[in-house]
Write a protein that binds this DNA or RNA. Structure first.
Lengths: 123, 123
DNA sequence: GCGAAACTTAGCCAATTGGCTCACTTTTTA
DNA sequence: TAAAAAGTGAGCCAATTGGCTAAGTTTCGC
């Protein structure tokens, strides 16, 4: 059996980076309600269009958003799958952490039993 | 009953930002195995100590890591609770997304039934 | 108590980010 | 067909990031 070291995953870099900005999380939350144009997304932010376009580029790069041009407007849609990727990473860390706590607990329990019986731990 | 708009949460900014760098995720993964000194954390990265310290500062700022000085070394510990915060945000988005898909599905279903009965949707 | 170890502080640097404006293209609509 | 709407590209700017080195400081071990 081969133990796999979790490779550093550039897609996680881009995903967490995309989520680290409140404007971008706001866009994600807006797109939960359904597709929207660039102007729709810009309106509540009060930002200039080109600024919002940069945020959209980051979101597209992370895979969270896809866009398509229809006439003179560009429609933006949420693609929630990458969120699962982030969630899986987080869950994995949690799982490893809990497993370690369990081992620690076992260890301490055994230590206390050994002491109670006057024996000593094997190094 | 008051519908609460999810306030933009600066702690999520800091948390996602902390997780967006592969070196920092590597440190988190290393700390899952137990506390470590700054030098311990620096060794596998091949980076200079001050660089690692900057990453640690970001991780501390996010709440993912706490450190305490003991003699001339600083011991770093993982504090996994903030991961739950990120997870909760992600789960919430997922939940909202699924709920919308359900409503869409209901809508389409009703539309098709109405068509089948020769009636027309109420706008 | 002196040298090595383990940070720590300050500051340099190039690249990136996150905002902007201004000029331009494309598409729609009056 | 001319003007308005919607987006796009270029480029400016200040702040932040992510690396470094060089020069402290504090603590440990001989």
């Amino acid at each position: 059996m081969v133990i796999q070291m979790a490779k550093h995953d550039p897609s996680l870099d881009r995903l967490f980076h995309a989520l680290s900005d409140p404007t971008r999380r706001g866009i994600v939350e807006r797109l939960l309600a359904g597709p929207a144009s660039v102007s729709d997304l810009a309106a509540p932010t009060g930002m200039a269009l080109p600024s919002v376009m940069k945020h959209l580029a980051v979101l597209e790069d992370s895979g969270l958003v896809t866009t398509e041009k229809a006439g003179r407007t560009r429609l933006c849609r949420l693609r929630p799958e990458p969120l699962d990727h982030a969630r899986n990473w987080i869950d994995e860390q949690r799982r490893i952490w809990e497993a370690r706590l369990d081992r620690l607990d076992d260890y301490v329990t055994r230590l206390m039993e050994e002491r109670a019986h006057g024996t000593r731990p094997q190094d």
